[in-house]
Every structure is written in C-alpha cells, then in structure tokens.
Nucleic acid binder design. Sequence first.
RNA 1: GGGCCCGUAGCUCAACUGGAUAGAGCGUCUGGCUUCGAACCAGCAGGUUAGGGGUUCAAGUCCCCUCGGGCCCUCCA
Length: 537
Amino acid sequence: MIKQELREKISGLIELPPSLQFTIEQPPKHSQSDLATNLPIVLSRTTGKEIKKIADEVISKLQGSQLVEKIDFAAPGFINFNISLQRLAQELKTVTAEDNAYPGIDSGKNKKVLLDFVSANPTGPLHIGHARCAIIGDTLSRIFRQFGWETLQEYYVNDIGTQMDILSESVEFRSRQLNGEKIDFPENAYKGEYITEIAGDINSKYENLPQREEIKKITLEKILDIIKNDLTDFGVNFDSWIYESELHNKGIVEKTIGLLKKQGVVYEKDGALWFGSAESGDEKDRVVKRKDGRYTYFGADIAYHSDKIARGFDKLINIWGTDHHGYVPRIMSAIKSLGYDENNVKIILYQLVSLSRNGVRLKMSTRAGEFITLREVMKEIGVDATRYFLSTRTPESHLEFDLELAKKQSPENPVYYIQYAHTRCCGIFREAKLEPSEKIFSGVNVSLLKEPAERDLMKKILFYPDTLNSCINDYTPHHITTYLLDLAGSLHKYYDGYRVLGNDEVLKISRLYLINAVRIVIRNGLSLLGISAPSRM
RNA sequence: GGGCCCGUAGCUCAACUGGAUAGAGCGUCUGGCUUCGAACCAGCAGGUUAGGGGUUCAAGUCCCCUCGGGCCCUCCA
C-alpha cells in the first residue's frame, strides 16, 4: 500500500516524536502531484523548528529515492511527491502476476472475524432496507477475505417471542378462512400475501389444522426458505444460521445470566433480573429475565454474544439499523462484563432506507403487508445495479430509493459505465487476438508509457490496495465504487485518445500490458462488490 | 421533554476523519463515430457546503445556537 510505504520511508529518515500524527494523502489536482504530507506543519508545532527547515531536511534526505521523485515544498507547509515510474511499473508487474488474487495482502492472516448481519425477524420476505444491510455485510466480508481474514457470516434468527406468536396466529387464521370459516382477521396480524400462500400450503398438506406450535414451525421454515433464496439470488451467502431458541434449549442463556449474577452485575429487583448497564454508560439498567420467568430479547442476546466470544474471534462485527442505536450501550456494557475487549467489537449502524415511487413515499410495513420486496427490486432493477446503488453510499447517509427513478436511470447507471470500461479492455484483446499471459508480455517496455493518460492509469492502479484498506478502516464498501468510477473514467478517456493496437509492436505490447492491469483491477473490484464484470455487453 | 444521525450543484451522492482552488454521475446545452464497441469522449452552465457564531496556520469536517428531515426513549423484538 503506497501510503503506508511512504509513511514508513519518511519515518525512517527523520526523528519523530512517537505519537506524532501526520497525514499521507492525495493532494488536490492543481498541485500536480500524487501524494502529500503535512509533516512539516505538525512537526513544527511540537518541536518548534521552522516549517521550511523541516521540509528541506526531509526533501534532501529523499533525493535519489526509488519510491518518489519531484519532491516539492508547498505553502503553508506541505511536501508534495510524485511517484517514480519504477514504483508504478512494479505495481503493474504485481497486478499481472497475481491476477485474480490481486492485491495479495495478508494483513489479516490467521485472524478471524464474525459478521452478524441482516438477522431480520423471520416474519416475511426481505425488503430493500434489509438489502442495504446485506450488501454492507457481504461486501465487507469479501474485503476482509481479500486481506487474508477468515470470515464467518452469521444470521441470528429470532425464532421465538411475540412476533413469532402473532405470525403463526396470522397463518392459522388465514388457514381457517381458506377452509370456509367466517372469522375476522385480527387487527395486528401479518397481512402479506405470503401468509395466505403458506396457509394454503398447510391446508393442502394436512387433513386437520395442526396445533399452533406445529404451524409456527412450518411457517418459520417456509419464511426462512424465502429469505435464504432471496439472499442467494442477491449474491449474499451466510455460513451460519443460529437460532435464538437453541440458545435457550441448550441452557446457554441461563448459564450466561447465572455467570453474570455471580459477578454481581446481574441483580434481582421487583421480581425480575436486571443487568447493571447504567454503570457503563447506558441510561438505565435493563431487564434480562422478566417477572414471569421468561428471558428478554436482551437476555438472550447477551448469551448469543457470549457464545460468539467463546467461539474465538479476533473481531466481532454487528450491522444494525440506526433504529437500534439506543441498544448499543447496553450490549457493549454486556460484552465488557463478559470479559471481551470492547475494542474488538464494531457495531456498524446504517440509516434506514426510505422507499418511494415517483417521489411519493411508500410506507414499509411487514405487518400490514405493504412493502416492496427485495425480490421485486432485483427483478425491476437487476442485481448488479441494485448492489451498486446500495454500495455507493456511506452507511450513515439517509438513502432515498425511488423505484421509478432507479428504473429510469438504470440504463445510465454508473455501474454500466464501469462494466463498459471492463468490456472495452476485453474488446482490445479480442481485436488483437491475444490472451493475456506472461509470455506475450515478455517484451514490455514500461518507459514507453509516457502519455499523461497512461501515467494517470498507472497511478490509479497503484491506489487500489489503499482504497480497500480505507474500506476496512471505515467499515464501509463505498470507497470502492467511487474508486472504480474514477478508474473507469480514466480508461474511457485513454481509450478515446490513444490507440492501443498500433504499428509499433513494443508500444502495442506495453499498452496491452497496462490495459490488462486495468482490466484485472476493475474485475477484482467489481467482484468484491458482488457485481459481474462482463467481457461483452 | 431527553438522546442519536443527517442537511453539499436541478437530482443522486463523494470529499481519504482538520488540509491546499469542494469533486463525480445523471439531467440541460454545444461539438465529436470510415479508425481497438459512441453503454464513450471533449467543452459550457450549475455552490455563501441549511443559517448564524466560535476554536486555528487551516473548517463541508470540531464546539455552541437556530431551522428542517429521520430514528430511538418497553419486564417489544
């Protein structure tokens, strides 16, 4: 990663206070350089040394470096760098060699991360809000894996509790109605069409209506099938499905709460058991076991986290809608009480999606059966465009999803702009009747790639690993989409301005070498987003 | 009433966590296919970063106030 390289290089040249924070960043366009640091400014502040003197010292020590060239001072106290052709060429070589595996960074080697996401109550098909969560989790997993992490994608199924009771009641009523009984459908019941379908299925399979518990089991299974199919077709695969009921049945809930009680962080009051979360930042203490003896959702969730911790992960990631933000302090408090380092827990909060059609806000209620399913969106907009749309915003941004707009814009969707850049790269090789291979690139001469557009492409390729690194650090996939759009733009510009398949054989091969690297990076980037990279469109 | 998040071009969003002259796509307008695919390129226009104050070499980014939008304040999940 180029920024890290430069940072280490500078740190090795000059004595720095150990905790000094300085930036390595991409400077604005007008600076005409590739990288910049604010080191002189910040170092001057702590040491009192003159800014210009610091800069001169760093600049003189970097002369002759194989990493950077054209090193300049810039007011009010930056140093600007250009990356050497040698370093740019080195990256092209790495890309070509590693191909599908690029970038082969193993910073996460021997580390395990568990991502718990979607985990929607199994009361109906997934909608666009769940899809946003699915995309954030799935894409982050892919990036973690790229960096060598072992990932586990887990879906926590809330298969007990009030919602499940109402759900099975809803199915039962629909079954009886279908059987000709004249009964009123309960006001608070689930009214979606899938309820009627499940009810119909049950009626056709059973002579007599099964018991409520049996109905619940059948309904849960059917709905989980729907959810699993939706996710699979959306390109999101879970490794593990864990059921709340099992945590109870295996006694994990009871054991965990018992342990906390022994520690003294769980206590009895008003006939219920409380967890003392107020002590570490929560508004108040929370009930984990009700007066009637049943554990709360929170009580079971503590057990779930205890179970996750026991399975031995270096990092736990939870992805929740912001409607759960009030829940964060109590679960973090619980995690601390369980003896797990809270710094290894990341709770990503994403803003809910508001759905509209032609600017008219649509209510999204699973209960009322009024919602657009993910399935419908995939069908109308397509998986690639939907995934792109959901990847391209930061999780904390409010997201307005207008169906008509999305449909209308889909032929103009930026995702096609990126994919088209990829097909153009493939098209050149088709036209040249060549397959990319080390053999055809043996006569490459990178120093022939001296057009500004070529340098621009090489530079952007070099920044790809840093882009992925930002995604990991910020826990968001959206940097990739911004990056790919930029890279695709550079490719299109180059394609329009220069001919790759010219008469000069060495130049041709060298340009093909560059085009091939662009092709690999675009394809690998799209792959991390779960988006296809077609060779023809 | 208390708390969290958001407000950036006509629209949808970026801006590398405090850096330099705030950038893309879409839309509008003007040009460009006899040449590796025009699902493209070049150019024009579009901004007091909701508004006001503060912190400092430097603020879209941090602090305070106001306005507007979303969400949460269950022995629900």
